[in-house]
């Protein structure tokens, strides 16, 4: 394949990955890495390097649209970023230490979990009760419901913080946003309202990825010829995806997307286990 054709295909694939990532709410990273590795036979480290860059672009690019509604919570975001950035440092460090097949298998498991969790949204369990640690750390807020403002307070702060550390580690290890683990931490553990956790986590993804970027850049995981079309493609795809998100809320279409992600997960585990990376 010539340079023009190869890079063109990577761009088109990245647009589709960004679109799929936005429509499933899982992010472009979890889709583009397996596609690059399994279909284009790109080295795992180059794939996660390119993906990490696209994750930063998507998070920062969507930020302006998310804050307008007033759901995101700056304090909760920056507080949990202490956990995610520390985790990301650990994850980025581990990427060089762990054998590539093991990274592939871990990636596959995260894909399967992501696919499963996007169908099992935790029930909304709004917390307004007093939580002394959350009060001390000012981890509360309110968001618009009709004309009124609904108040909420975070719960189980240490558990949420610990889970966010794991989310950061996975992000640094796999070059993804690890949205599924963030949902687990913020929705399930800390009982934050769904819209608050989704918009806040979008902000956090970019900062978390930036913490791994230093190590990725220094080790040469980010190769310009590959990172450029992946970053531009995923960015375009996710911007289109977030705009059409409201229109496509069809459950069966969603099922198809999630099945694609599950198949990619199985394939990553199989390829890792049979040493094909």
């Amino acid at each position: 394949m010539g340079m023009m054709a190869f890079t063109g295909w990577i761009l088109v694939t990245s647009v589709v990955a960004g679109l799929l990532g936005a429509l499933t709410g899982l992010g472009g990273g979890v889709v583009i890495v397996p596609v690059l590795v399994l279909i284009f036979h790109v080295d795992m480290h180059y794939a996660i390097g390119a993906s990490l860059i696209s994750v930063i672009a998507t998070s920062s690019g969507a930020a302006a649209a998310y804050v307008r509604d007033g759901y995101s919570n700056v304090r909760i975001g920056i507080f949990l970023e202490v956990a995610t950035t520390l985790g990301a440092l650990l994850g980025a460090y581990l990427t060089a230490k762990i054998a590539t097949p093991a990274i592939g298998i871990t990636f596959g498991l995260v894909l399967l979990y992501s696919a499963w969790s996007s169908f099992n949204r935790p029930p909304e369990e709004l917390n307004v009760e007093h939580d002394s640690l959350a009060s001390k750390l000012k981890l509360f807020g309110d968001y618009p419901v009709g004309n009124k403002r609904q108040e909420y307070t975070a719960r189980r702060v240490p558990l949420g913080f610990g889970l966010m550390f794991s989310a950061g580690t996975l992000s640094g290890l796999l070059g993804i946003g690890s949205g599924a683990v963030k949902v687990l931490a913020m929705d399930r553990a800390m009982s934050l309202p769904f819209k608050v956790s989704t918009t806040t986590s979008n902000f956090m993804i970019g900062v978390t990825a930036a913490a791994s970027a230093g190590l990725y850049l220094a080790r040469g995981y980010v190769t310009p010829g590959l990172a450029a079309p992946v970053m531009l493609g995923v960015l375009i795809g996710s911007l289109i995806g977030s705009r059409t998100l409201v229109k496509i809320n069809n459950r069966s279409l969603r099922l198809v997307f999630v099945l694609v992600i599950a198949v990619l997960g199985v394939e990553m585990i199989y390829s890792g286990a049979t040493g094909r990376f």
Binding site: M1, G2, M3, M4, A5, F6, T7, F40, H41, V42, D43, M44, H45, Y46, G220, T223, P224, G225, L226, A228, P229, L232
Partner: peptide, 20 residues
């Protein structure tokens, strides 16, 4: 940068199959 790269490089693409 990418446009410059794509229009300048001739011959087969690197492919990025192996990590260097």
């Amino acid at each position: 940068g990418w446009m410059l790269m794509v229009t300048r490089v001739t011959g087969p693409a690197p492919g990025y199959h192996h990590f260097h």
